[in-house]
Amino acid sequence: MSHEPQAIDSRHLVIVGIVMLVSTVTVLGVCFLIWRTWAASEPLPVQPVGQPRLQARPASDLAAFRRQQAAQDRWEWVDERHATARVPVERAMRLMTREPPR
């Protein structure tokens, strides 16, 4: 003797099938209406693609970048009175990853 029913409840199966059919028809109808609305509208004008914006002075830009990097890679006081210093990035990363004193 089994604890599960052997017969399939056909009433529920028919209800699920009808709901799926109505849902499918509704979604297809909405998609068709949206498609007709968009197809009837005027297409957007195509904007011409502009030229790429290249650097005007790449050599001087590179020199300015290197000066900025060099300024960041040196030790200096930001505020000596409050003991705030600028530390090079590599050195700061090494200091932050070392084990704290016990």
Rank of each mutant, 00 (worst) to 15 (best):
I34R: 15
I34A: 10
W35N: 15
R36W: 14
T37C: 06
T37F: 13
A39I: 12
A39C: 06
A39P: 03
A40W: 10
S41V: 12
S41Y: 10
S41N: 13
P43V: 04
P43T: 06
P43L: 03
L44P: 05
L44A: 14
P45K: 07
V46N: 11
V46F: 07
Q47T: 15
Q47I: 15
P48T: 04
P48W: 02
P48M: 04
V49R: 11
V49Q: 13
G50S: 10
Q51G: 09
Q51T: 15
P52L: 01
P52C: 03
P52A: 03
R53K: 14
R53F: 08
R53Y: 13
L54C: 05
Q55S: 14
A56S: 13
A56Q: 12
A56I: 13
A56D: 09
A56G: 07
R57L: 11
R57C: 10
A59V: 05
A59N: 04
A59Q: 07
S60E: 15
S60V: 13
D61H: 08
D61E: 12
D61T: 14
D61F: 06
L62C: 06
L62S: 11
A63R: 06
A63W: 02
A63D: 04
A64N: 03
A64E: 05
A64I: 01
F65D: 11
F65V: 14
F65Q: 14
R66V: 08
R66K: 10
R66Q: 11
R66N: 07
R67S: 10
R67P: 02
R67K: 13
Q69K: 08
Q69F: 04
Q69N: 06
A70H: 03
A71T: 10
A71N: 14
Q72T: 06
Q72A: 10
Q72D: 07
D73V: 00
D73K: 01
R74S: 03
R74D: 01
W75G: 00
E76T: 15
W77I: 00
W77E: 00
V78K: 11
V78Q: 07
V78Y: 03
V78L: 12
D79Y: 08
E80G: 07
E80F: 05
E80K: 13
E80T: 12
R81W: 12
R81F: 09
R81V: 14
R81C: 04
H82R: 15
H82K: 14
A83W: 12
A83T: 14
A83K: 15
T84W: 14
T84L: 15
T84V: 15
T84A: 14
V87N: 00
P88C: 01
P88V: 00
P88R: 00
V89R: 13
V89N: 09
V89L: 09
V89A: 08
E90Q: 10
E90G: 07
E90F: 08
R91V: 13
R91L: 08
R91C: 02
A92V: 01
A92F: 00
M93S: 04
M93N: 08
M93F: 11
R94M: 05
R94D: 12
L95T: 02
L95M: 07
L95D: 02
M96H: 08
M96K: 09
M96W: 06
